[in-house]
Design a protein around this nucleic acid. Sequence first.
DNA 1: GTGCCCCCGCCAGTTACGTCA
DNA 2: GATGACGTAACTGGCGGGGGC
Length: 306
Amino acid sequence: MAEKDDGLGLSLSLGCPDNNQIQNHHPSPAATPPPPPTAATRFPLNFFRSPLPFMQQHVSSSSDAFHPSSTDRNAEARSSLFRGIDMNIRAVSVIDCDEEVMVSSPNSTVSSLSGKRSEREDNDGESLDLDDDGGDGGDAAARKKLRLSKEQAAVLEETFKEHNTLNPKQKMALAKQLNLRARQVEVWFQNRRARTKLKQTEVDCEYLRRCCENLTDENRRLQKEVTELRALKLSPQFYMNMSPPTTLTMCPQCERVAVSSSSSSAASASLDRPTTNGSTHHHHHRPVPMNSWAAVIPPHHHRTGS
DNA sequence: GTGCCCCCGCCAGTTACGTCA
DNA sequence: GATGACGTAACTGGCGGGGGC
Protein backbone atom coordinates (compact mmCIF):
# COMPACT_ATOMS: atom_id res chain seq x y z
CA MET A 1 0.00 0.00 0.00
CA ALA A 2 1.41 3.31 -0.92
CA GLU A 3 2.23 5.78 1.76
CA LYS A 4 -0.39 8.41 1.98
CA ASP A 5 -1.85 10.87 4.29
CA ASP A 6 -4.42 8.97 6.20
CA GLY A 7 -6.14 11.91 7.62
CA LEU A 8 -4.28 11.54 10.85
CA GLY A 9 -1.51 13.67 9.53
CA LEU A 10 0.91 10.89 10.15
CA SER A 11 3.66 9.59 8.00
CA LEU A 12 6.48 7.18 8.23
CA SER A 13 9.05 9.65 6.99
CA LEU A 14 11.90 9.12 9.33
CA GLY A 15 15.31 10.55 9.01
CA CYS A 16 18.45 9.11 10.36
CA PRO A 17 17.75 8.51 14.01
CA ASP A 18 20.30 10.77 15.49
CA ASN A 19 19.58 12.34 18.77
CA ASN A 20 18.17 15.49 17.38
CA GLN A 21 15.75 13.69 15.24
CA ILE A 22 14.82 11.40 18.01
CA GLN A 23 14.06 14.38 20.10
CA ASN A 24 12.10 16.04 17.43
CA HIS A 25 10.28 12.97 16.46
CA HIS A 26 9.41 11.92 19.95
CA PRO A 27 8.68 15.04 21.84
CA SER A 28 7.89 14.67 25.45
CA PRO A 29 4.25 15.25 26.20
CA ALA A 30 5.23 17.16 29.27
CA ALA A 31 8.00 19.21 27.81
CA THR A 32 6.65 19.84 24.37
CA PRO A 33 3.58 21.90 23.73
CA PRO A 34 1.20 20.70 21.09
CA PRO A 35 2.75 21.42 17.74
CA PRO A 36 1.14 23.78 15.30
CA PRO A 37 -1.32 22.08 13.03
CA THR A 38 0.95 21.50 10.12
CA ALA A 39 0.41 18.64 7.76
CA ALA A 40 2.94 16.52 9.54
CA THR A 41 2.05 17.36 13.08
CA ARG A 42 -1.60 18.04 13.09
CA PHE A 43 -2.19 15.07 15.29
CA PRO A 44 0.98 14.36 17.13
CA LEU A 45 1.70 10.73 17.63
CA ASN A 46 3.11 11.23 21.04
CA PHE A 47 0.13 12.89 22.38
CA PHE A 48 -0.07 10.49 25.21
CA ARG A 49 2.74 8.04 25.06
CA SER A 50 6.44 7.67 25.01
CA PRO A 51 8.26 7.18 21.78
CA LEU A 52 8.97 3.51 21.94
CA PRO A 53 7.46 0.59 23.74
CA PHE A 54 10.49 0.11 25.92
CA MET A 55 10.12 3.67 27.03
CA GLN A 56 6.42 3.64 27.22
CA GLN A 57 4.89 4.85 30.37
CA HIS A 58 1.47 4.23 31.64
CA VAL A 59 -0.64 6.90 30.15
CA SER A 60 -4.16 6.10 31.05
CA SER A 61 -3.72 8.10 34.18
CA SER A 62 -2.81 11.13 32.18
CA SER A 63 -6.43 12.03 32.02
CA ASP A 64 -7.11 11.54 35.65
CA ALA A 65 -7.95 15.16 35.93
CA PHE A 66 -10.94 14.48 33.78
CA HIS A 67 -12.13 11.43 35.59
CA PRO A 68 -15.51 11.75 37.07
CA SER A 69 -16.25 11.66 40.68
CA SER A 70 -17.60 8.46 41.99
CA THR A 71 -20.85 10.21 42.66
CA ASP A 72 -21.24 11.03 39.03
CA ARG A 73 -20.35 7.56 38.01
CA ASN A 74 -22.69 5.88 40.40
CA ALA A 75 -25.50 8.19 39.56
CA GLU A 76 -24.95 7.50 35.95
CA ALA A 77 -24.81 3.81 36.62
CA ARG A 78 -28.01 3.85 38.61
CA SER A 79 -29.87 5.80 36.05
CA SER A 80 -28.49 3.72 33.25
CA LEU A 81 -30.12 0.66 34.65
CA PHE A 82 -33.39 1.94 33.40
CA ARG A 83 -32.20 3.40 30.22
CA GLY A 84 -33.02 2.31 26.74
CA ILE A 85 -30.97 0.16 24.53
CA ASP A 86 -28.49 1.08 21.91
CA MET A 87 -29.86 1.97 18.55
CA ASN A 88 -28.13 -0.95 17.00
CA ILE A 89 -29.88 -3.50 19.09
CA ARG A 90 -33.22 -1.96 19.50
CA ALA A 91 -34.52 -4.08 16.75
CA VAL A 92 -33.82 -7.15 18.76
CA SER A 93 -34.64 -5.73 22.12
CA VAL A 94 -37.47 -8.10 22.63
CA ILE A 95 -36.68 -8.41 26.28
CA ASP A 96 -37.86 -5.88 28.73
CA CYS A 97 -35.36 -3.32 29.74
CA ASP A 98 -35.84 -4.49 33.22
CA GLU A 99 -33.16 -4.15 35.78
CA GLU A 100 -33.69 -7.66 36.97
CA VAL A 101 -33.40 -9.05 33.51
CA MET A 102 -30.27 -7.11 32.83
CA VAL A 103 -28.57 -8.22 35.95
CA SER A 104 -29.69 -11.75 36.25
CA SER A 105 -29.23 -12.63 32.63
CA PRO A 106 -25.99 -11.04 31.67
CA ASN A 107 -25.31 -13.71 29.11
CA SER A 108 -28.59 -13.81 27.44
CA THR A 109 -28.90 -14.57 23.77
CA VAL A 110 -28.74 -10.88 23.07
CA SER A 111 -25.09 -10.60 23.81
CA SER A 112 -25.00 -6.90 23.23
CA LEU A 113 -27.22 -6.42 26.17
CA SER A 114 -25.08 -8.25 28.57
CA GLY A 115 -23.75 -6.76 31.71
CA LYS A 116 -22.17 -3.40 31.69
CA ARG A 117 -22.61 -2.98 27.99
CA SER A 118 -26.29 -2.61 28.27
CA GLU A 119 -26.04 -0.49 31.33
CA ARG A 120 -23.60 1.71 29.62
CA GLU A 121 -25.92 2.40 26.79
CA ASP A 122 -27.30 5.82 26.91
CA ASN A 123 -30.32 7.31 25.35
CA ASP A 124 -29.18 10.81 25.82
CA GLY A 125 -32.60 12.11 25.36
CA GLU A 126 -31.96 14.73 22.79
CA SER A 127 -29.62 12.62 20.79
CA LEU A 128 -30.43 11.36 17.39
CA ASP A 129 -32.63 8.40 17.06
CA LEU A 130 -30.47 6.84 14.49
CA ASP A 131 -32.45 3.71 14.17
CA ASP A 132 -35.58 5.54 13.41
CA ASP A 133 -36.02 3.88 10.10
CA GLY A 134 -35.16 0.66 11.70
CA GLY A 135 -37.30 -1.38 13.84
CA ASP A 136 -37.42 -3.13 10.57
CA GLY A 137 -37.21 -6.22 12.54
CA GLY A 138 -34.73 -8.96 12.26
CA ASP A 139 -31.19 -9.24 13.48
CA ALA A 140 -29.87 -8.19 10.11
CA ALA A 141 -30.61 -4.62 11.02
CA ALA A 142 -29.06 -4.98 14.42
CA ARG A 143 -26.03 -2.92 13.58
CA LYS A 144 -26.46 0.24 11.64
CA LYS A 145 -23.34 2.12 10.86
CA LEU A 146 -23.29 5.85 10.80
CA ARG A 147 -20.85 7.84 8.78
CA LEU A 148 -19.85 10.90 10.72
CA SER A 149 -20.04 14.12 8.85
CA LYS A 150 -16.93 16.12 8.15
CA GLU A 151 -17.99 18.71 10.63
CA GLN A 152 -18.52 16.15 13.33
CA ALA A 153 -15.22 14.50 12.59
CA ALA A 154 -13.45 17.83 12.65
CA VAL A 155 -14.85 18.73 16.04
CA LEU A 156 -13.94 15.33 17.39
CA GLU A 157 -10.44 15.69 16.05
CA GLU A 158 -10.04 19.08 17.59
CA THR A 159 -11.26 17.78 20.90
CA PHE A 160 -8.96 14.79 20.66
CA LYS A 161 -6.03 17.11 20.18
CA GLU A 162 -6.90 18.77 23.44
CA HIS A 163 -7.58 15.60 25.42
CA ASN A 164 -7.33 12.09 24.13
CA THR A 165 -9.81 11.00 26.73
CA LEU A 166 -13.03 12.52 27.90
CA ASN A 167 -14.78 12.46 31.18
CA PRO A 168 -18.51 11.79 31.15
CA LYS A 169 -19.39 15.45 31.29
CA GLN A 170 -17.16 16.30 28.40
CA LYS A 171 -18.45 13.33 26.53
CA MET A 172 -22.04 14.32 27.08
CA ALA A 173 -21.37 17.91 26.12
CA LEU A 174 -19.60 16.88 22.99
CA ALA A 175 -22.30 14.43 22.09
CA LYS A 176 -24.90 17.09 22.56
CA GLN A 177 -22.93 19.54 20.51
CA LEU A 178 -22.55 17.07 17.68
CA ASN A 179 -25.99 15.63 18.02
CA LEU A 180 -24.57 12.22 18.63
CA ARG A 181 -24.99 9.74 21.41
CA ALA A 182 -22.38 9.71 24.14
CA ARG A 183 -21.62 6.13 23.28
CA GLN A 184 -20.73 7.18 19.76
CA VAL A 185 -18.35 9.81 21.05
CA GLU A 186 -16.83 7.29 23.38
CA VAL A 187 -16.36 4.76 20.61
CA TRP A 188 -14.90 7.37 18.34
CA PHE A 189 -12.30 8.27 20.95
CA GLN A 190 -11.45 4.65 21.55
CA ASN A 191 -10.97 4.00 17.88
CA ARG A 192 -9.03 7.20 17.48
CA ARG A 193 -6.65 6.20 20.23
CA ALA A 194 -6.24 2.81 18.62
CA ARG A 195 -5.44 4.38 15.28
CA THR A 196 -2.93 6.70 16.87
CA LYS A 197 -1.29 3.84 18.64
CA LEU A 198 -1.12 1.78 15.50
CA LYS A 199 0.53 4.60 13.62
CA GLN A 200 2.98 5.14 16.43
CA THR A 201 3.84 1.46 16.39
CA GLU A 202 4.59 1.68 12.71
CA VAL A 203 6.83 4.66 13.32
CA ASP A 204 8.55 2.85 16.16
CA CYS A 205 9.16 -0.15 13.95
CA GLU A 206 10.63 2.01 11.26
CA TYR A 207 12.84 3.73 13.80
CA LEU A 208 14.08 0.44 15.19
CA ARG A 209 14.64 -0.91 11.71
CA ARG A 210 16.83 2.06 10.89
CA CYS A 211 18.69 1.67 14.16
CA CYS A 212 19.30 -1.94 13.31
CA GLU A 213 20.56 -1.04 9.89
CA ASN A 214 22.92 1.56 11.29
CA LEU A 215 24.26 -0.80 13.90
CA THR A 216 24.75 -3.48 11.30
CA ASP A 217 26.67 -1.09 9.13
CA GLU A 218 28.74 0.03 12.04
CA ASN A 219 29.42 -3.52 13.04
CA ARG A 220 30.48 -4.34 9.51
CA ARG A 221 32.77 -1.37 9.45
CA LEU A 222 34.34 -2.27 12.76
CA GLN A 223 34.85 -5.85 11.68
CA LYS A 224 36.62 -4.61 8.64
CA GLU A 225 38.72 -2.34 10.75
CA VAL A 226 39.69 -5.19 13.02
CA THR A 227 40.74 -7.21 10.05
CA GLU A 228 42.85 -4.37 8.79
CA LEU A 229 44.45 -3.83 12.16
CA ARG A 230 45.27 -7.46 12.46
CA ALA A 231 46.88 -7.32 9.07
CA LEU A 232 48.95 -4.38 10.20
CA LYS A 233 49.92 -6.05 13.42
CA LEU A 234 53.22 -7.14 11.93
CA SER A 235 54.17 -3.60 11.01
CA PRO A 236 54.26 -1.74 14.32
CA GLN A 237 55.91 1.36 12.87
CA PHE A 238 52.97 2.01 10.67
CA TYR A 239 50.75 1.22 13.56
CA MET A 240 52.34 3.87 15.75
CA ASN A 241 52.04 6.60 13.15
CA MET A 242 48.43 5.91 12.53
CA SER A 243 45.83 8.17 13.99
CA PRO A 244 43.06 6.34 15.78
CA PRO A 245 40.28 5.78 13.30
CA THR A 246 37.72 5.01 15.91
CA THR A 247 37.33 5.67 19.55
CA LEU A 248 34.92 4.00 21.83
CA THR A 249 34.15 6.37 24.60
CA MET A 250 32.42 5.83 27.86
CA CYS A 251 30.74 8.41 29.98
CA PRO A 252 32.48 8.36 33.35
CA GLN A 253 29.21 9.10 35.09
CA CYS A 254 26.85 6.59 33.64
CA GLU A 255 29.29 4.25 31.93
CA ARG A 256 27.37 4.36 28.71
CA VAL A 257 29.30 3.65 25.59
CA ALA A 258 29.29 5.86 22.56
CA VAL A 259 31.14 5.53 19.31
CA SER A 260 32.85 8.46 17.79
CA SER A 261 34.94 8.46 14.71
CA SER A 262 36.64 11.05 12.61
CA SER A 263 35.96 9.06 9.52
CA SER A 264 32.44 7.83 10.03
CA SER A 265 29.10 9.31 10.67
CA ALA A 266 29.28 9.37 14.40
CA ALA A 267 25.69 10.30 14.80
CA SER A 268 24.55 7.09 13.28
CA ALA A 269 26.39 5.10 15.86
CA SER A 270 25.27 6.90 18.92
CA LEU A 271 23.77 4.56 21.45
CA ASP A 272 22.02 7.24 23.39
CA ARG A 273 18.30 7.12 23.48
CA PRO A 274 15.95 9.94 24.24
CA THR A 275 14.74 9.86 27.75
CA THR A 276 11.13 9.66 28.64
CA ASN A 277 10.97 13.31 29.42
CA GLY A 278 12.20 14.14 25.97
CA SER A 279 15.63 15.29 26.95
CA THR A 280 18.69 13.58 25.73
CA HIS A 281 21.36 12.23 27.94
CA HIS A 282 23.64 14.66 29.70
CA HIS A 283 26.62 15.84 27.72
CA HIS A 284 29.69 13.72 27.79
CA HIS A 285 32.26 16.34 28.57
CA ARG A 286 35.12 13.99 29.12
CA PRO A 287 34.68 10.81 27.20
CA VAL A 288 36.92 8.03 28.30
CA PRO A 289 38.33 5.90 25.54
CA MET A 290 37.81 2.24 26.11
CA ASN A 291 39.75 0.49 23.43
CA SER A 292 43.40 -0.15 23.05
CA TRP A 293 44.01 3.53 22.58
CA ALA A 294 42.96 3.97 26.15
CA ALA A 295 46.46 3.03 27.12
CA VAL A 296 47.31 6.67 27.02
CA ILE A 297 44.75 7.47 29.67
CA PRO A 298 46.21 7.85 33.15
CA PRO A 299 45.07 5.15 35.55
CA HIS A 300 43.22 7.48 37.88
CA HIS A 301 40.66 8.13 35.17
CA HIS A 302 39.37 4.63 35.61
CA ARG A 303 38.87 4.78 39.35
CA THR A 304 35.36 4.03 40.32
CA GLY A 305 35.63 5.55 43.73
CA SER A 306 34.58 2.45 45.59
C1' DG B 1 -6.91 -2.79 57.42
C1' DT B 2 -8.77 -6.30 54.26
C1' DG B 3 -11.68 -8.74 51.09
C1' DC B 4 -15.52 -8.83 48.17
C1' DC B 5 -18.57 -6.87 44.91
C1' DC B 6 -20.03 -3.56 41.60
C1' DC B 7 -19.26 -0.18 38.26
C1' DC B 8 -16.56 2.17 35.12
C1' DG B 9 -13.13 3.27 31.50
C1' DC B 10 -9.90 1.54 28.59
C1' DC B 11 -7.76 -1.65 25.43
C1' DA B 12 -7.04 -5.36 21.93
C1' DG B 13 -9.28 -7.84 18.80
C1' DT B 14 -13.07 -8.50 15.84
C1' DT B 15 -17.15 -7.65 13.01
C1' DA B 16 -19.78 -5.27 9.80
C1' DC B 17 -20.85 -1.47 7.01
C1' DG B 18 -19.79 2.41 3.63
C1' DT B 19 -16.87 3.99 0.05
C1' DC B 20 -13.99 3.77 -3.79
C1' DA B 21 -11.23 2.04 -7.57
C1' DG C 1 -23.37 -3.96 -11.62
C1' DA C 2 -20.03 -7.05 -9.15
C1' DT C 3 -16.03 -7.28 -6.47
C1' DG C 4 -12.18 -6.69 -3.47
C1' DA C 5 -9.53 -3.47 -0.67
C1' DC C 6 -9.69 -0.24 2.66
C1' DG C 7 -11.28 2.84 6.40
C1' DT C 8 -13.85 3.03 10.33
C1' DA C 9 -18.07 2.75 13.36
C1' DA C 10 -19.52 -0.42 16.53
C1' DC C 11 -19.18 -4.56 19.33
C1' DT C 12 -17.03 -8.07 22.57
C1' DG C 13 -14.45 -9.77 26.31
C1' DG C 14 -10.99 -8.92 29.55
C1' DC C 15 -8.41 -6.15 32.84
C1' DG C 16 -7.40 -2.83 36.36
C1' DG C 17 -8.84 0.91 39.37
C1' DG C 18 -11.97 3.19 42.53
C1' DG C 19 -15.64 3.23 45.81
C1' DG C 20 -19.03 1.17 48.95
C1' DC C 21 -20.07 -2.30 52.27
